[in-house]
Amino acid sequence: MGFKLLSKLLVYLTASIMAIASPLAFSVDSSGEYPTVSEIPVGEVRLYQIADGVWSHIATQSFDGAVYPSNGLIVRDGDELLLIDTAWGAKNTAALLAEIEKQIGLPVTRAVSTHFHDDRVGGVDVLRAAGVATYASPSTRRLAEVEGNEIPTHSLEGLSSSGDAVRFGPVELFYPGAAHSTDNLIVYVPSASVLYGGCAIYELSRTSAGNVADADLAEWPTSIERIQQHYPEAQFVIPGHGLPGGLDLLKHTTNVVKAHTNRSVVE
């Protein structure tokens, strides 16, 4: 069995187990497998329904001669939608809004960016022009300005110390501490036991640490421990890039980060 097929099978099995364990909360999309990078042309966006009122959005972007996937989250909030992270750029984010209108038909009224990198804030200006209120932590807003990236308009308070959590509509926002970046936030959907790890969490097929220019490698494993301790009931975990899975993604990420750190020390 090929690795790609095995990865998709694991996603399907995880979703099936969740649907059985929580039949009222989960209505997993039966329309197909989780979209992969090879299936999404740059400039297009796919939506994948995880649970009743919960979707991931998947886009792709060219970077350094390669094409990478990027995940975000959409959560229903009454007759409105909360968006977590842009679709990595203005063109993708405009396509995301169009796809949401086509498939869901509810307005996106608020959006949260989970850290300051372009795959999370690139497209904020498109959201703002569409009347979406954009939010991020003060740290993310400051770092985005320093980096020359787009800056969300509103500040999220109460997320300055490791372990801080605040309720934001249908989700809980959690600051686990520094990891992929010093400002990275985690998003949890309690009604569906869905954990969105953003770039602080890796997919299972990833074996290298990737972009760690703004990471705190020493603190990252401790931050992941905080996530595990705060959300032990999480059933569906979405990484910032690639295929979702279960809580095993947290341990896998820790292993990859520690291996990278150990290699760096040896070198």
Rank of each mutant, 00 (worst) to 15 (best):
196 Y>Q: 06
49 Q>F: 13
1 M>W: 02
1 M>C: 13
225 E>D: 08
163 G>V: 08
54 V>P: 03
105 G>L: 06
163 G>M: 13
78 G>M: 09
202 Y>S: 11
239 P>S: 10
265 V>H: 03
234 A>H: 02
15 A>L: 07
157 E>R: 12
34 Y>N: 05
182 T>C: 11
34 Y>S: 06
173 L>T: 04
123 G>P: 01
10 L>D: 12
44 E>K: 04
71 N>S: 05
251 K>I: 03
205 S>E: 15
189 V>Q: 10
106 L>R: 10
174 F>M: 12
57 H>V: 07
124 V>G: 14
62 S>R: 04
113 S>G: 09
3 F>Y: 02
176 P>Y: 01
102 K>P: 13
262 N>F: 09
199 C>I: 11
145 E>V: 13
22 S>L: 06
229 Q>R: 08
100 I>R: 00
72 G>L: 01
92 N>S: 13
186 I>Y: 07
118 D>V: 14
138 P>H: 15
234 A>G: 11
178 A>V: 09
29 D>I: 14
194 V>L: 05
232 P>E: 14
229 Q>H: 15
125 D>T: 15
208 S>A: 10
14 T>N: 12
176 P>A: 10
121 V>H: 15
177 G>W: 03
65 G>D: 03
38 S>Q: 11
209 A>W: 13
117 H>Y: 00
103 Q>N: 10
224 I>V: 04
220 W>T: 14
194 V>F: 12
73 L>W: 00
187 V>D: 02
237 V>Y: 12
237 V>M: 02
95 A>K: 04
73 L>P: 00
181 S>T: 08
35 P>Y: 08
96 L>Y: 00
62 S>Q: 04
78 G>T: 07
33 E>P: 02
73 L>N: 09
235 Q>K: 13
61 Q>W: 09
100 I>H: 00
61 Q>T: 04
155 S>I: 00
139 S>D: 15
155 S>K: 15
61 Q>H: 03
191 S>W: 08
126 V>K: 15
251 K>V: 10
156 L>T: 02
75 V>A: 05
154 H>S: 07
199 C>G: 10
10 L>A: 08
2 G>C: 04
186 I>C: 14
56 S>L: 07
239 P>H: 02
170 P>H: 01
123 G>M: 00
36 T>H: 02
4 K>Q: 01
214 D>M: 08
243 L>Y: 02
121 V>R: 15
206 R>N: 15
249 L>G: 07
100 I>W: 00
6 L>T: 03
48 Y>R: 03
211 N>H: 04
257 V>W: 08
123 G>V: 02
4 K>D: 05
94 A>Q: 14
137 S>Y: 00
69 P>E: 05
145 E>S: 15
98 A>L: 11
29 D>N: 09
180 H>A: 00
24 L>W: 13
82 L>G: 05
64 D>I: 06
236 F>A: 05
1 M>F: 01
110 R>Y: 03
257 V>D: 13
115 H>S: 00
81 L>G: 11
81 L>T: 11
122 G>I: 15
225 E>Q: 02
40 I>F: 04
213 A>I: 06
16 S>T: 10
147 E>H: 01
229 Q>S: 02
80 E>S: 13
247 L>I: 00
120 R>W: 01
39 E>M: 07
9 L>H: 09
90 A>M: 15
20 I>K: 11
178 A>L: 13
216 D>T: 05
24 L>H: 12
218 A>Y: 10
198 G>H: 00
160 S>L: 12
229 Q>V: 09
106 L>I: 14
19 A>F: 11
257 V>K: 15
39 E>D: 14
222 T>P: 07
260 H>L: 03
55 W>G: 05
68 Y>P: 11
182 T>N: 05
244 P>C: 13
164 D>H: 05
170 P>T: 06
192 A>I: 14
114 T>G: 06
175 Y>V: 10
167 R>H: 00
35 P>T: 05
30 S>F: 02
157 E>D: 08
200 A>C: 09
